[in-house]
């Protein structure tokens, strides 16, 4: 996916040109980490925004790692593992594939921009692919801007206020088919 595509429609007016994203790259020990090592040995240049987290296998990647990274200040997450069929533990990346396919869709459904979570299979000899992938996600996220912005904080405050909630329910909830705005149940003391 190109940078232009990712930022289309979501382009904020106030993306700072000097913004440097923080990217977490979760790399499997046997392939991607070795690939990253090879990229280093070959003196390849890639953006310094990336922080590499080594895991034994992409099957080790708990989706909560991704959520935690996004919650605690990363603007994008890259998950890499061995190519299907090449897993050191035979099947770890097949499980990871299913899991991450579903999880990526869920995150994007609940509002994460496409491109902030990238998953790629990179083998130990694909140093160039590692460099390209890191460059790709850095550029994408740079164009998207910080994940947590003051605009978003304002939105949070807005949706916590009664007026904001009513507005969101009327405009979005109604469009989704919730005719009556979902409001908290009245406490009636019943053990329902």
């Amino acid at each position: 996916m190109s940078v232009v595509e990712a930022s289309e429609g979501t382009q904020k007016a106030t993306v700072d040109a000097n913004f440097e994203p923080t990217i977490l790259a979760i790399a499997c020990h046997w392939c991607t980490y070795t690939g990253a090592d090879l990229a280093g040995m070959n003196r390849m240049n890639y953006p310094p925004n990336v922080r590499v987290l080594r895991v034994p296998c992409s099957g080790r990647v708990n989706p909560q790692y991704i959520l935690t990274a996004l919650n605690k200040g990363c603007d994008g997450v890259l998950v890499c593992g061995c190519h299907p069929g090449d897993c050191h533990y035979v099947s770890g990346n097949y499980y990871a594939k299913r899991r991450l396919m579903a999880f990526k869709r869920l995150l994007e459904y609940t509002g994460l921009e496409e491109g902030r979570l990238l998953i790629r299979w990179i083998s130990g000899s694909e140093a160039g692919k590692f460099r390209d992938t890191v460059t790709e996600i850095c550029q994408t996220v740079k164009a998207l801007g910080p994940l947590s912005t003051s605009e978003q904080d304002a939105l949070t405050a807005f949706s916590r206020s009664a007026a904001g909630l009513a507005d969101i329910n009327a405009n979005v909830g109604a469009a989704a088919g919730f005719a009556s705005a979902p409001e908290p149940n009245q406490a009636d003391g019943a053990g329902e």
């Binding site: 429609g9 979501t10 994007e108 459904y109 609940t110 509002g111 994460l112 921009e113 939105l155 949070t156 949706s159 904001g164 909630l165 969101i168 329910n169 405009n171 979005v172 909830g173 469009a175 989704a176």
Partner: peptide, 15 residues
């Protein structure tokens, strides 16, 4: 929800 724009959906789910 899927047919909605991402921004609107994000706003609703955030609330």
């Amino acid at each position: 929800f899927e047919a909605m724009e991402r921004d609107k959906r994000a706003q609703y789910f955030e609330s």
